[in-house]
Structures are given as C-alpha cells and as structure tokens.
C-alpha cells in the first residue's frame, strides 16, 4: 500500500471555514490517517493571512515534538526591513528545523521578477531549499517563466494547476526542468500518466491543499493513475524525500 507525504498542508485558524471542513490539527490528522498520509509539510495560516513572522513562530509552537508535520515557513524577499534578510532566514530555518519555504507573491503583494527576488533566491539556491507556491500566486505564466528560468538551481514546486492549464503548463515544464508539479488539483483526464510519459514521474510531488483541499481526492488521483508502482512511489513520497534530503542549511 502506498504511503504518502503531503507537500501542501496548512495549520492554524484561517479566516474562512466552510461547514464540515476540517479545522483543527486533530481534524487534519484524522484525514491523514484515513488517507494513508504519513507526514505533511505544513505552514501556518497566520503566516499567509495575518502576520508572517507571528505565523512562522506559531508553526514552531504547534509542531513542537510532532513528527507528523515537516515545518515550512512562509517567506518573502527582503523588503527594506519588513522581513528578515536571506542569510538570516537561512540561519533561522536551520536553527528551527524548517526545510522549505512557501511564497504567496500575489497575496503578499510583491513581484517574482529577478529585480525583486534578487539575493533572496540566490541564497535559497545555495542552500538547496525547495520553494513552494501555487499557480495562481504567480500572476501569469510569463511571471512563472521568468522566476523559473532566472533560478534554474532552485526546485520550485508549483501546485494547484487546474485541468484547464495544460496548454500553458506543458511548455513551461518542457523549458524549465526545475518546475515540479504539485498533484493535488491536477485533475486532467489521465493527467498523471501524461506528465509521467512526457516529463517523467520525477516531476510530480503529491500534495492535498488540506484542510481546504481534498486529501481523499488527491490520494485517489495517484492510486488510480495508470502508471507503474515505482512511479507512484516517487510521486507519493520519493521525490519530496529526495528534495528534503538535499537541503544544505
């Protein structure tokens, strides 16, 4: 049976909760157990929606001693004193066992163009830190291409590409080998097999978007994909384990 590592999970109180949606950490753990998800890479809702520094601190508190969650901080390029500089970020990540970062450029109001990302992304490249963001947060395919092609040493995990994006997404995947696709909402008919056939199973990372996304759907998408058991193992956990093992903070 496949065991999964979820590469996209949010902890903490968010602003909007729909009726019946998982809310607490124990709600999320119940779903992880039900869906054979062993671990989840988690960031904090406060770091996305409220205060980045406070949210990253809350993440440390809420995951203290909990081996089911792999810590991820939200981050942004240094904005003249608002957020810590890249070297300090790397030091703090090492100190607190944080192994990846998540960006929300659209929500947080900054550009992903090289003139803005600058040294921040250079440090992430030096430390082999995987960088996560959603398709919609990039703003446009051209923005995404600019980011991916400017930092070819950085592995970017791009999630939440919808079933309507193939014509934009596939050329990006062909041109930018450092684009890894989060599988959560990629519900193209036979899409997982398509990516394996065109680009290889190494280019996909299992994620759910919990608690707003669906773990039950995300797991079935991989289990029912018409690909080999070895390819499923890579997508379910092998690829993300390889990336995290390569982090040099």
């Amino acid at each position: 049976m496949l065991n999964f590592i979820d590469a996209r999970c949010q902890l903490g109180r968010r602003g909007i909760v729909r009726e019946g949606e998982p809310v607490t950490k124990s709600d999320i753990l119940e779903l992880m157990d039900r869906c054979s998800i062993e671990k989840a890479i988690a960031y904090h809702a406060m770091a996305k929606e409220g205060d980045m520094k406070a949210g990253n601190d809350l993440l440390l508190q809420e995951t203290e001693g909990d081996e089911r969650f792999i810590r991820q901080w939200c981050a942004m390029p240094s904005t003249f004193g608002e957020f810590m500089g890249a070297e300090e970020l790397a030091e703090q990540m090492k100190k607190h066992h944080v192994s990846s970062i998540r960006l929300f450029p659209k929500t947080h109001g900054y550009s992903v163009k090289p003139y803005a990302m600058g040294k921040f992304m250079d440090v992430m490249a030096q430390c082999h830190v995987p960088v996560f963001l959603t398709y919609a947060e990039c703003g446009s395919e051209d923005n995404l291409y600019s980011l991916l092609s400017s930092y070819p040493e950085v592995n970017f995990i791009i999630s939440d590409a919808s079933y309507r994006e193939n014509r934009k997404l596939f050329p990006l995947m062909e041109q930018c080998k450092n684009l890894l696709l989060g599988t959560g909402n990629f519900v193209v008919h036979g899409g997982v097999k398509l990516i394996c056939d065109y680009f290889g199973a190494e280019r996909m990372i299992f994620d759910t978007g919990l608690p707003m996304g669906s773990a039950t759907a995300a797991v079935a998408l991989i289990c029912y994909a018409e690909i080999s058991e070895e390819e499923k193992q890579l997508i379910a956990h092998g690829n993300i384990e390889r990336l995290l093992a390569d982090v040099k903070l």
Partner: peptide
C-alpha cells in the same frame, strides 16, 4: 476532467 478523484 478525471473521474478517479471524485470516486476517491
């Protein structure tokens, strides 16, 4: 789109 995610 796919059907397997809804089945899941």
């Amino acid at each position: 789109f796919e059907c397997s995610h809804i089945l899941g």
